[in-house]
Design a protein around this nucleic acid. Structure first.
Lengths: 240, 240
DNA sequence: CGACACTTTGACTGTAGTCAATGTAAGTGG
DNA sequence: CCACTTACATTGACTACAGTCAAAGTGTCG
């Protein structure tokens, strides 16, 4: 369904930007060659659905941001995961994905067919182990977010999200030196997406961003580009 | 720290109630004997902390319910996971647990020391694989709960939780035949715990339970014992 | 320029939170 | 046996935070 709009190219591991950080890092030269044989590079434009319930896609994210969403029957939506390079995308060992994956920005993937990939998983225990560790980290993040959704105020939520993106998004265009407590980055999400991730409405998100700006906690270059003069202060606002 | 208050007995796999459903089901006779050598049965009374940040505990839950909680510095608390038999407890491959595990009821565990257990994981890939599948399911549940915390009303949250317990708690004293749409079970949680799991206050939980009772969606035998005359109706109320 | 997508701002509303009192049941000790 | 305590739950009155509905603002693209 998504195939006709997406470019497909054979994967080139030797030039891959996430070669050592992605799950591929668990493989030897020969094993990698094996994986490479079934890999295809794909470009997905902003807003396009990557994995509907029917066709599961497994892929490394090379560039861009992917949102995982769940929706109630009346349309209320919640983003349940945000994925950045070099994250692995896809619900393995399941008949159908329990959520939608959608490109939040233009996305570049290194995609694998379901069958071939799951076969390789059983063949190379190190690969499965790496993916297991990934999954454990994702579970920790999800539970961290449950605390935010269940207990934090709108103000704290917005601050927490900005902080999270400042930390995770360096690979998608963020400047952040851990010593100097300053950060500048570009939000990969619209206000509506921020709201869907934070369990708020877009109006509330907008108001909170305006407040943080007025107080000098953040500066806005434009709607997407954000400067955090002092990350410590943002951390205070975020709660924890 | 918890040791002095908890009974410890050698594990008896042949009499184990969760022998085939727990992760042990992935092991052969001989492998199981290996695991058995390092296993100790432990009883934990209601309210006692099982794993603080320092001492990680790995265990199968044999009986009772364990809650995983996260807390903000000012005391706001969120339950980020509820575990029933035969769930596996513990954050493997981590220096310290990112959350507290606490006995929501009296709990019986089959516990393993960290080092010995992680060694066995590397030795028996099937064991790790089983645990991996567990973790994937937990991640799905966590994300399901994110949708609840971010988007559902108080009424829908309470209904969803009752439904979840009706489904998951058969091993801790629930009667539920899938054909007949009737269910009776005992809540393993206080109102305060329900609130901490649902991201609400205990007053709001109490009011919603009262409303559901008044409408005949549920009946209360006592504060803990609940009858659902028609699970379909409860499902409607839960949203989705 | 006008159209469109996204964002901000304003006025008002409503759901769930807060604070406080009351209710209920089990357990203790005189 | 009954007062008393303790823990947990319910109910009520009031409040506040975020949601809703509506309008106006901003920037980009054709």
């Amino acid at each position: 369904m998504a195939g006709d709009m997406a470019f497909e190219l054979p994967a080139k591991c030797d030039r891959c930007v996430v070669r050592h950080k992605a799950i591929c890092g668990a493989l030897s030269e020969n094993e990698l060659k094996d994986l490479n044989r079934i890999a295809r590079q794909r470009r997905i434009p902003t807003g396009q659905v990557i994995a509907a319930d029917s066709d599961i896609v497994f892929a490394n994210i090379l560039d861009g941001v992917v949102k995982l969403t769940k929706t109630l029957s009346d349309g209320r939506q919640q983003i349940v995961g945000l994925q950045f390079p070099p994250d692995f995308l896809g619900r393995i060992y399941a008949k159908e994905s329990p959520y939608f994956a959608e490109a939040a920005t233009d996305v570049e993937l290194c995609a694998f067919p379901k069958d071939g990939f799951e076969r390789m998983l059983r063949q190379y225990p190190d690969l499965e182990h790496r993916l297991f560790e990934n999954t454990l980290d994702e579970l920790d993040s999800a539970r961290e977010w449950m605390l935010l959704l269940g207990r934090k105020t709108a103000r704290e939520r917005v601050a927490s999200l900005l902080l999270m993106i400042a930390r995770r998004a360096p690979d998608v265009g963020c400047t952040h030196t851990p010593e100097i407590r300053f950060s500048r980055f570009s939000l990969p999400l619209t206000r509506a997406d921020l709201a869907d991730y934070l369990g708020l409405t877009l109006e509330t998100v907008s108001r909170q961003i305006t407040n943080l700006k007025k107080e000098g906690v953040i500066e806005l270059v434009d709607n997407r580009e954000i400067i955090v003069p002092d990350v410590d202060i943002l951390e205070d606002v975020a709660g924890n």
